[in-house]
Structures are given as C-alpha cells and as structure tokens.
C-alpha cells in the first residue's frame, strides 16, 4: 500500500488490486463512522481510495501506511436486484468476445454476484465487478453518441447501468426499468460503492415486476 499526498489536505491510498481497494474502502468507511477518521470525502476507484478534506494529512498518512487490511465484510450491505431484459444491441459482439452462443451471455451475466467497486462518469453510475476476468471485453471502437437510460453495459472488467441517456462506449447487453439515479429520492443513488448487485433476467417483451 502506498500513500500519496494530494495537495494540502488530501491523500491518495494506492493498493495493487480492485479487491484490496474495496476492502480498504470498507475499512475507511468503518473508521469514519466510528469517528476515528475525519475526512470530507472518501472516494474509492479502481486501485485507489481518495481521502479528501482531511485534517493532519501527514499524521494520517503515517497511520495508514501501517494499516493491515481486514478482508471485505462478507455481507455488509443488502443485495440490490436489477431486473434486466437481455436485449442489448451488442449481445452478439459480447458473445463473440466470450466465445459463447448469444443466449449464454444472459445466463453467465445473471449468474454472477456483483459489487459496486466505485462510482464516477455520471451521478449514480456504478462500476460493478464480479465477472471472472476472462469475460473482460474492450470498449466499442467508436462510442455511441446516445446510450439510453437503463442500458446495462460491459467494458473491461466492469458492468454498468446508464443512469440517464448519455454518450458512451460500453457494450450494451440489456435494459432495466429501474431508476438508478433520482436526486429527489433518498438515497438518490440506487448503487453506491460496496452495494452488492444481482441481475435478474426478465422476458424481453415483459416488464420488470
């Protein structure tokens, strides 16, 4: 684990794997909740956790450098189920990358248990991990100018669900009717870092229950 100072009052804690980043994030949240870690923002990402708005960054850095990471708590958060119609325009592409028949994509994807590693790109957009690494797929060579809200998509090791229509280069495998992001709702984001997620297939013509 490396602790890099960022400006006057932030630290970037770098680890070597996504799993370690998730474990570190959970541990830092626990410390903040118990009052031993004053930080304005705790922002997990692929291999790092950013602590922004910390008092005494020097002292905290020394403390973190000595931190031994406990494993990610097994069932800290409840599992969010996302009903999906596996009807995305890139299903055949993804099947080709995976080397499986098209109908297998839904089965493989829905069998995995996902975890929100981090959020970014847009409010409420979660980067979900959980597929074995041989299912990684590259982004589309040319991004789409508009991806519809609710699109379930893959890129690299991640699955994401577009909270609203936006440009995007991920490969679209399905659609959900759930509202991922609603600032008037509490909580606004259906998915936040650490949330466990399962995708539940629903018939392409049906509606989510």
């Amino acid at each position: 684990m490396r602790v890099l100072p960022v400006g006057e009052d932030a630290l970037l804690v770098e680890v070597s794997t996504g799993d370690e980043a998730q474990a570190l994030h959970a541990e830092l949240l626990r410390r903040r909740a118990e009052g031993s870690l004053p930080a304005g923002e705790i922002v997990p990402a692929a291999r790092t956790v950013l602590l922004d708005g910390v008092t005494e960054p020097g002292r905290l850095a020394a403390e973190l450098a000595a931190l031994r990471l406990p494993p990610v708590p097994a069932r800290a958060a409840e599992t969010v189920e996302i009903p999906v119609r596996y009807d995305g325009p890139d299903l055949a592409d993804v099947a080709a990358h995976w080397g499986v028949p098209v109908r297998e994509v839904a089965r493989v994807h829905a069998a995995a248990e996902f975890r929100v590693a981090f959020c970014g790109f847009a409010p409420g957009f979660g980067y979900l991990t959980g597929l074995p690494s041989h299912y990684d797929v590259p982004r589309r060579p040319t991004p789409r100018t508009a991806v519809p809200a609710g699109s379930v998509a893959l890129a690299g090791p991640y699955t994401g669900v577009y909270p609203r229509s936006s440009p995007g280069g991920w490969r679209l495998i399905g659609t959900t009717d759930l509202t991922l992001w609603d600032p008037a709702r509490v909580p606004a984001a259906l998915l936040s870092p650490g949330t466990r997620v399962r995708f539940v297939p629903v018939p392409a013509t049906g509606r989510a229950a």
Binding site: V6, G7, A10, L12, E41, V43, P44, A45, A46, R47, T48, V49, L50, D52, F118, G120, Y127
Partner: peptide, 10 residues
C-alpha cells in the same frame, strides 16, 4: 492510469 479520485485544483 486506472481511474482515480480527483480533487478540486488537481
């Protein structure tokens, strides 16, 4: 660089 958190003034 894998995506990482950004601060104001970065």
């Amino acid at each position: 660089l894998p995506s990482e958190g950004m601060v104001l003034g970065a």
